[in-house]
Design a protein around this nucleic acid. Sequence first.
DNA 1: CTGCCTAATTGATTCAGGTCAAAAGCAACA
DNA 2: TGTTGCTTTTGACCTGAATCAATTAGGCAG
Lengths: 250, 250
Amino acid sequence: MTGSKATPLRSAPQQPCEPIACAQCGVYRLCLPLGLLEVDLSLLESVVRRKVTYKRGQLIFRPGDRFDFIYAIRSGSVKTSVQTSDGRLQITGFHLAGELLGLSALDSRSYSCEARALETTSACMVEAERLEELAQKIPSIQYQMLRIMSGHIRRDEDLILLLGKRSAEERLAEYLLGLSRRFASRNYSPTQFRLSMSRGDIGNYLGIAEETVSRILSRFQNAGLVAIDRRQVRLIDLGQLEAMACINAA
Amino acid sequence: MTGSKATPLRSAPQQPCEPIACAQCGVYRLCLPLGLLEVDLSLLESVVRRKVTYKRGQLIFRPGDRFDFIYAIRSGSVKTSVQTSDGRLQITGFHLAGELLGLSALDSRSYSCEARALETTSACMVEAERLEELAQKIPSIQYQMLRIMSGHIRRDEDLILLLGKRSAEERLAEYLLGLSRRFASRNYSPTQFRLSMSRGDIGNYLGIAEETVSRILSRFQNAGLVAIDRRQVRLIDLGQLEAMACINAA
DNA sequence: CTGCCTAATTGATTCAGGTCAAAAGCAACA
DNA sequence: TGTTGCTTTTGACCTGAATCAATTAGGCAG
């Protein structure tokens, strides 16, 4: 659990209440404002309360906290996790710039999962109540919210499939390819990137042991599929990785 | 995979286009119309196209089908599943009366999972486009949709935790208790019910082998926690089951 | 009632991946 | 530049649950 010190570490994040301009934001086309007219956009901006910055390992929210904000990641990355009552923790998502956090709280008005920054991360806090009001007035915002939640459900289905039916090797291959795709859609290199998750976190997320992650990554490296130096990754044979993600080509 | 014949079996379901009255529906308070004013309710009813009936094993929709309808279960039960490209199938949900199917299609306009009736099942087909339009006009409908999707995400998180971190025994205990709670909220006995899923389906859903399901149920029975006769279940020691669902008390 | 089909149980054996243990790399910092 | 404290890698061994293989038990058509 990289950076997730046992202590909650909820020291107040930096809070420069600077105004937010979605149009200027680099991930605007992956986020809520996608497809909004300029008028609507400025209304949306009016419910974005402030930009906050979190340091590696810092808590953003945790289960039971009152649901006041949806968080939109501007830069950096965040892990979300849920826990059994006896303390075992399962990471449910690994979120990059442009993604929204806290959507599963809408139903019960309190967060159901914990969110923690994996590296220095900047986010917009969107006032949940006012966003909902706004969604009622502006169809395109409402549509965006529904789309985003629908997409979230779909990604959860993929993770469920992965956890339920795939071998450790397939899980890792799929994981690397998933990152690759997501970096690509953010205009980063799809073949060369830095992992912000530790081996432990990756294993936890994929439902396998940390040691297994290490072993399999080594195996991939020896097979010439990837080059890995600590957290720096280079994908060499995408095709082979894709084959492996489905039919465990061992 | 009970009842899921290899053949799609998409013979047209019975389609009496009878008008629907939500207020008359037994699961009205678990479904979309919850909390709507009478005026709004009749508007909602106007987008409910028809009631359909499916027989055990019959396909409701499958991945790639164009997304035209959200389905609301009136009675019976449905399983949803996703597949790897090499054909392994993972059941992602087991849905009872009052629940909505197809929400993960909203983003891409085509279903991402397959839905199949587990027994004779009756459902309302709600026109997706028109429901979205309506949600834009009627805040309470919109709110309901967001809530329902949020709840869906939350339940997916629970399944992810189960698949990622729990032992086979805990999974079964949790599964039985989950059913119990859901039957209770539908005014059925929480301690005595009939499983509409086969052992194979249950195992698939929980990420364990059919044989393991059988073995563990026998173990539960021997330990006096439950009484099981084929698909008929009686929960005897809820407390013990709850303890087991968390801390594998073996 | 009888035979057939599918679902469920139970036993024996195997294995993927977990757990435990130790060593090696790297980074931060006094 | 050595010390401290991670994170990662690697090895040895173990185990929970999968797989393989019968067997049993209902459900139902004729």
